[in-house]
Design a protein around this nucleic acid. Sequence first.
DNA 1: TTAATTTTTTAGATTTGTCTAAAATTTATT
DNA 2: AATAAATTTTAGACAAATCTAAAAAATTAA
Lengths: 221, 221
Amino acid sequence: MGPKYSSSRENYLKAIFHLQEIHGTVTTNHVAGELQTRPASVTDMLKKLKAQKLLLYEKYKGFKLNTEGRKVALQIIRKHRLWEFFLVEKLHFRWDEVHEIAEELEHISSKKLIDRLDEFLGFPKTDPHGDPIPDSQGRWTLTHQVDLLNLPVNLVAEVSGIGDQSAEILELLNHKHIALGTRLEVKKKFAFDNSLEIKIRNQSVTISEHVAKNVFVKYDE
Amino acid sequence: MGPKYSSSRENYLKAIFHLQEIHGTVTTNHVAGELQTRPASVTDMLKKLKAQKLLLYEKYKGFKLNTEGRKVALQIIRKHRLWEFFLVEKLHFRWDEVHEIAEELEHISSKKLIDRLDEFLGFPKTDPHGDPIPDSQGRWTLTHQVDLLNLPVNLVAEVSGIGDQSAEILELLNHKHIALGTRLEVKKKFAFDNSLEIKIRNQSVTISEHVAKNVFVKYDE
DNA sequence: TTAATTTTTTAGATTTGTCTAAAATTTATT
DNA sequence: AATAAATTTTAGACAAATCTAAAAAATTAA
């Protein structure tokens, strides 16, 4: 049993899904930009996806994934993010190295493989960039993800991603014992320089605006 | 940077490599049989592989991999076997389930990924079927692999694979504490029923001919 | 509301890997 | 050695995914 859809089709579904999430509507040019391809190629593929009943599409009138298309897209995203988690957590890749490799791994078709991988990794809820990982039914826990500057005070949150991936910021965060998964709380915001006082494991730490902008946290609601 | 060679080309290289190992010479029909394709398709691909300088080929005169082709083939085999090891050892797949999945995983291109995986797995020397895993230079430890019936007496060997993958034999082996990696030695062969007396961790165990035929071991030389 | 611009689609070509049917070549048989 | 049989290759076709250039439709601006 080979894959149900070609890698190319899967990439289109994923791109359309992401663009839908961000912009609400999706355009041919958007998709072409996202996938580094030509608008004409996108149109070609839209027809195929429509024929496969994954997409609602009338020419010149825009398009969006239908239920089935969303379902397929979510499974690809699930695979992508689980593999990214694996690469960082088990193979010790840096967060900024894993995307490209996961782009290939996400097209491995075995459902059993991905469910076993999920189990092996301990059913992680978010990938190394802090994005949620859909479960095998395509559901994900709705968590708010914001940067530290926008985290309401006195609300416990968990570090879920870092924007800037430079060695410099990682060194700083490492020194202050801030890592993926660290639980923290903003106690005070200083209007003067937008610096923050945060609590980590009952210790008080000060963070500059520059750093705060690059630390993403999630909290349930 | 995408993959250097298409999955299809990689499959041809791997098939030719295996057939070369088994039969010495390789024929168009052989390859077609192995890859479930048509002889005409094989000829088409042979020309492409020749053009890419991976194959020595004169039409109607047979063909074989050149140094570069062998090198590429060995890297694919390395990937295939490391992934199989991963699937069995970490994700607890059965040995007979992993081949198909590894057929897909072996085409993931990142060299860094596979070297990290190798490290993560502890640099295994053989895959779950007992076949040797080439190292990142394409070398493998030359080990003799035989079934237990053909293992010379008084020679320490390591269980490297099981022929029959039925639950029944696995139960029996489990009960006798014979697993992948178990070190053992044949102490006596009974001509009457071809049963064997073997030593495992200083314990003496008797094995029937039927079982012995299905336990593969390797020993260095 | 026309005209200009942008976006999207079509038409037709290209590449990769495959196929079938027929031709060329090699191997086996009488 | 001549013929039959098997193998291998060629010729030409096809599907998938892409492209360019041109046409069609929608949007924006005058």
